[in-house]
């Protein structure tokens, strides 16, 4: 009985999002599929992952978990709106999304007079996020800059959330990693075929990034046993796309591994710190 449950959990947690990521990545490579449809599907998939793990929220939202669910549901709709926007506008909207989410999440403890120094972490995340996205647009020198660094952030955050006592969010981030992993795999397979750099849609990247930002803000605000050092290393990983100008000069098939290797420099110590704090 428990064996069956484990397989079901594994399918729900990992294989379903992975397959969906591969499907969406493949659809994005086909010119016939409208990019807005991919954005809608990607954002909806992330929101669905969250709802699958945390349940459907009541209206109006009561707890921070419910609020995050509604923000994630809104992101694909915002993703459609940013299609014609400039990179500056997209960055501003993403930053605003982070600020509004954080303000909404802390509304209840703040109104009870609680102020937690740990809240500096989500504020720092939003700040570093904005600085990075402002400097390195979603489509840049390497097709792997955003998919691989996002995957690295998501995997590390998932482990840190699990070790930090935020099991539900850890599972959500694990499923998000599988989704982004599937998407990234398709980009890599496209590069294997040769030819020019495979294109990634800025709207899709924006949607994934925005969702991850919201989940990181939730993690940093509410994890009860969060390792500050480990989380600071995640913030340092947020700045990984700055390496794009250097790493995009490498041969295309080396680029994903170079980004992954760079991510490990921060990711492994982050996990070790979280383990020590566990």
């Amino acid at each position: 009985m428990s064996g069956h449950m484990s397989v079901n959990t594994l399918i729900m947690l990992f294989f379903m999002p992975l397959a969906f990521g591969i499907g969406l990545g493949s659809a994005e490579r086909r010119a016939s599929v409208a990019s807005w449809l991919i954005v809608l599907a990607m954002g909806s998939a992330i929101a669905a992952i969250y709802l699958l793990h945390e349940g459907f929220p009541p209206f109006p939202a009561i707890s921070s978990k419910h609020k995050v669910a509604y923000v994630l549901i809104a992101i694909p709709l915002l993703g459609l709106f940013i299609d014609k926007q400039t990179p500056v506008c997209r960055t501003a909207l993403q930053t605003l999304l982070g600020v509004v989410t954080f303000s909404w999440l802390i509304q209840r403890p703040l109104s009870a007079g609680q102020i937690d120094w740990q809240w500096l972490l989500p504020v720092g995340t939003i700040f570093v996020w904005a600085a990075t996205v402002a400097k390195v647009p979603e489509v840049t020198g390497s097709s792997f800059t955003w998919p691989v660094t996002t995957l690295a952030k998501s995997i590390t955050a998932s482990i840190i959330a699990l070790l930090g006592g935020f099991i539900g969010l850890g599972q959500v981030l694990l499923s998000l990693s599988a989704l982004v992993g599937g998407y990234t795999l398709v980009v890599f397979l496209s590069a294997l075929k040769g030819g020019p750099q495979p294109q990634v849609s800025p709207m899709t990247i924006w949607t994934i990034q925005s969702s991850l930002l919201v989940l990181l803000v939730q993690l940093a605000t509410f994890a009860t046993n969060l390792s500050t050092g480990a989380y600071l290393l995640i913030i340092s990983m947020v700045a990984l796309p700055f390496a794009d100008s250097k790493l995009s000069r490498l041969p295309i098939l080396v680029q994903p591994f170079a980004f992954a290797g760079l991510a490990l420099v921060a990711g492994i110590p982050a996990i070790l710190l979280a383990l020590r704090n566990f």
Binding site: D116, G165, F222, T224
Partner: peptide, 19 residues
């Protein structure tokens, strides 16, 4: 202590929001 902290987290009693 560790379990108390976990049970007080957002997955369970969510103490910071609902004391």
């Amino acid at each position: 202590e560790q379990r108390d902290r976990d049970m007080g987290g957002a997955d369970f009693l969510n103490i910071s929001e609902f004391p």
